[in-house]
Design a protein around this nucleic acid. Structure first.
Lengths: 411, 411
DNA sequence: CGCTCTTTTTAAAATTTTTTACAAACTTAA
DNA sequence: TTAAGTTTGTAAAAAATTTTAAAAAGAGCG
């Protein structure tokens, strides 16, 4: 278990000896590498950490004793003696992930090898009220009981929410009423569940997941577009989630693209969100069907509310030309907005995530087209636009990585 | 002098001993701190580097012998024994700075304490031709002779240029013909002058200067706007210049704000550049004067080309209401463009630099106004908009910092 | 002015870390 | 199958670093 520092320890921490400080640093670096790489040999760790093999051996032995690390067989394919592989212990240090969207809340318990141990999904309506927070707390305690795990086996909670999240203060500006008291709601939740809670915005989690385990792997500068009820831009800079000063970085959805456009739910007019989000796509289709447009979805003429984004994408895949046009138009507008982000961030990869990712080339082609038109050639030359291959897992993988990296940093 | 590694040394470097590696790392960290802070005591260095005082003492002694560092008196105001202060040696390790704008080229020789030892300015026209590069080389050799300094006293060159600079390849995409051969022109220049050349975009240099020594000091997330012949955005993220994948990050000037706007020199239509650059401001004023507008600058009616940006700013300061309106309008459009960058980068500070900085509150007020209108409240709460206090020095200070940090990193 | 208190600096002891040397485990080629 | 070549793992020697202790240098106060 983590050595949770008491207040006395904290005092000691400031006057911590140089040797202990370095040991801690190296131990956490080892754990970080093992998390990232799956398994490593002593020689590999020694090289990446610029430390001698005997020192690494000593550190890993300590981590073995503490239960953080396991020896997992030997590596093969080598010329000489086969090295022992070390890996994070899969039986401890679980992370509990809570992911609330507008329509449901998912709870997962994940081990350090990113294997899902336990999972529950409930339909919920994420609302701007304190009740939602008490629901989260009871959902956690009930699920823990159901899972049969002990409180000690879980070490931290990762909470994924949409909206504007102030990472410094632990508040969600989009849902300010989540706060029961005047203290940040993450503090309250921490007290209720008894674990540290790490809060991250859904889009940023997705971007991190893609960067660590998906298409953007190994790249330093990645943009990840998450198209859901709104439009979210996740930014990876120097291999880290870019949060900005208060955690709001990446609000592409609320830049104005049309001064005479529709009123956005944020209160401003003509936001990119009003044009390129999944909900706007559905709205357009509904209006068109209502107006008598020729399309496979005309069947919903008398039940417009039944139309959802999946219907549109399916229709496009089946060759419905109006659906294709609609996706094309949305993709192009999205690409136009994205080209602003490309001009400012000069990324290596753009990854398309969220429900629209199902639209694959109906979406990526017009995006590429718009970027070609609106960006200078230098930006385009090395730029890759691709659809996620993680099939929806990017968000929780990213949340897990976020929590693990935070925990290891404080180890 | 720097130990320029021969090819054999390079081989050794890969198999460098752990001890040497760490020594190098710490030595460079010490030099970096001294560059940043001016002067430090052994105890301060030991604390920031997490190293014992005897070790630091040894390292600093080595740096003293190598001529990198000097003892400069003792610190006062302390309770106990007064510590010796160490500082970078001002008499060696000069950096030669070359700064070419569209109308002139400035050469400065700067010591590690950021004191200008020698300076020359010549009128030049930065053109997209190989001749310009040969001019730079001769300008450097002539100035060196004139300065009376030996070749050894200078350790590196910092070259500041406008345009799209590919930092990875050492090419300037805006001026592709600068390349004499098919190799990057920085390579050629390095061979000619005999020092390593570090190339940086003018706006990025300005941003770095502001972050290290100006208004953005100590802040992690800074935007710096440089309004000159075009509009440049310099971005500081986590205290580092943000270059993006290929060094193009921050091209705010060429995002489209008006699909029906003027043709931009970049070939696209309605770029922000066409609305908010100093040249567009002058163009507007010229048209207005020609059309008979009431303004102090009406005196230039028969000589429109005489009108420059300084005239407009002066007129505004003298109360000319049309000039004030014009600056206001430009500031507002600029603020509208900036609010996109604010939504994406969520900065702590925005610093206004370049010729328009003289316009001070005629510019900053409408910028704030536009940001208030176009950004969500969370972004605005902690955001500071201010005019540079470095009075034009930000660019060369930033270039110097860039070179020093690169050199120290490779030390 | 001398005393105590504080902080820096130096020196010696203790500890940690690296280096070196060698044994162990395994592959490949003769 | 054996010998040569590689790489890993471990123990002892060597080196480097930190810790501890004590001296040096100065501030403040009675």
């Amino acid at each position: 278990m983590l050595p949770t520092p008491s207040s006395e320890d904290d005092l000691l921490l400031t006057k911590q000896s140089v040797v202990d400080y370095k040991k801690n640093q190296k131990a956490r670096a080892i754990l970080g590498h093992l998390y990232q790489q799956g398994s490593r040999t002593l020689a590999q760790l020694a090289e990446t950490l610029h430390t001698s093999i005997p020192s690494i051996t000593g550190l890993v032995e300590e981590l073995l004793e503490q239960g953080w690390v396991n020896a997992v067989g030997t590596a093969s394919g080598n010329n000489g003696r086969r090295p022992v592989l070390f890996s994070l212990n899969a039986g401890e240090h679980y992370v509990l992930i809570l992911d609330s969207t507008t329509h449901d809340t998912r709870l997962m318990i994940v081990n350090p090898r990113r294997e899902v141990i336990f999972q529950r999904v409930v339909d919920t309506h994420l609302e701007n009220s304190a009740q939602f927070l008490t629901f989260l707390a009871t959902f956690v305690t009930e699920s823990l009981a159901e899972s049969g795990l002990s409180h000690d086996q879980i070490m931290a909670v990762g909470l994924t929410l949409p909206g504007l999240i102030d990472t410094r203060r632990g508040v969600n500006l989009t849902y300010p009423n989540l706060n029961l008291t005047d203290q940040p709601f993450t503090d309250w939740l921490e007290q209720q569940v008894g674990w540290p809670v790490f809060l991250i915005n859904d889009t940023k989690a997705t971007a991190l997941g893609e960067n660590r385990f998906g298409g953007g792997q190994g790249k330093n500068h990645v943009l990840s577009i998450n198209i859901d009820w709104g439009l979210g831009l996740g930014i990876i800079i120097n291999g880290e989630v870019f949060q900005g000063a208060s955690g709001f970085a990446g609000e592409l959805g609320h830049i104005q693209v049309d001064p005479n456009g529709e009123l956005c739910h944020c209160g401003k007019v003509g936001c990119l969100d009003t044009i390129t989000s999944a909900s706007s796509l559905v709205r357009h289709m509904q209006r068109a069907v209502e107006a008598g447009q020729q399309t496979r979805l005309a069947a919903f003429r008398h039940d417009l509310n039944q139309i959802n984004i999946t219907h549109i994408i399916e229709a496009a895949h089946e060759g419905d030309s109006f659906a294709i046009d609609l996706l094309h138009e949305t993709g192009y507008q999205l690409g136009k907005g994205l080209s602003i982000a490309v001009n400012l961030f000069n990324p290596e990869v753009i990854i398309i995530d969220g429900v629209l990712a199902q639209g694959s080339m109906f979406i990526t082609n017009p995006i590429r087209q718009a970027i070609n038109k609106h960006c200078l050639s230098g930006f385009r030359r090395d730029l890759i636009v691709e659809v996620t291959k993680l099939d929806g897992a990017a968000k929780w993988l990213g949340t897990h990585a976020y929590v693990m990296e935070k925990v290891l940093a404080s180890y």
